[in-house]
Simulated assay, not measured.
Amino acid sequence: MDILSLLGLLVAFGAIIGGNFIEGGKVQSLLQLTAFIIVMGGTLGAVLLQTPLKVFMRSLKMLLWVFRPPAIDAERQIENIVEWCQLARKEGLLGLETLSEQLEEPFSRRGLQLLVDGREPESIRSIMEVELESLEEQAMHAAKVFEAAGGYSPTIGILGAVMGLIHVMENLADPSKLGEGIAVAFVATIYGVGSANLILLPIAGKLKSIIHAQGRVREMTIEGLTAIAEGENPRAIEAKLRGYLH
Results as ranks from 00 to 15, higher is better:
195 S>A: 14
186 F>C: 09
187 V>F: 04
188 A>Y: 01
223 E>K: 13
191 Y>N: 09
231 G>P: 05
197 N>M: 10
201 L>H: 10
211 I>V: 14
221 T>E: 10
202 P>R: 09
226 T>I: 08
214 Q>V: 09
220 M>R: 04
186 F>A: 13
187 V>Q: 03
225 L>V: 12
187 V>I: 15
216 R>S: 13
233 N>K: 11
214 Q>D: 14
221 T>P: 02
192 G>T: 08
197 N>A: 08
232 E>F: 11
226 T>R: 04
214 Q>N: 14
217 V>E: 13
230 E>P: 05
198 L>C: 13
199 I>E: 03
186 F>M: 15
205 G>M: 10
203 I>W: 02
184 V>H: 03
183 A>Q: 12
200 L>Y: 06
212 H>E: 15
198 L>V: 13
191 Y>W: 09
218 R>S: 11
205 G>Y: 03
184 V>I: 15
190 I>H: 06
201 L>M: 14
192 G>N: 07
195 S>L: 12
189 T>K: 05
210 I>F: 11
208 K>W: 02
185 A>E: 06
211 I>M: 06
191 Y>M: 07
194 G>R: 00
228 I>C: 10
212 H>F: 13
232 E>W: 06
185 A>R: 03
188 A>R: 00
185 A>S: 14
211 I>C: 06
207 L>W: 02
198 L>A: 14
230 E>A: 15
215 G>P: 07
196 A>E: 08
226 T>F: 00
221 T>K: 01
211 I>S: 01
217 V>G: 01
190 I>A: 15
193 V>A: 12
219 E>R: 12
228 I>T: 03
213 A>G: 05
209 S>I: 05
233 N>P: 05
190 I>S: 10
200 L>C: 10
210 I>R: 07
209 S>D: 13
227 A>Y: 01
215 G>H: 12
216 R>Y: 11
229 A>E: 04
201 L>P: 07
218 R>V: 01
215 G>F: 05
223 E>N: 11
220 M>D: 02
202 P>E: 09
215 G>Y: 03
187 V>K: 00
192 G>P: 05
199 I>V: 15
198 L>D: 06
205 G>C: 09
203 I>H: 00
194 G>W: 00
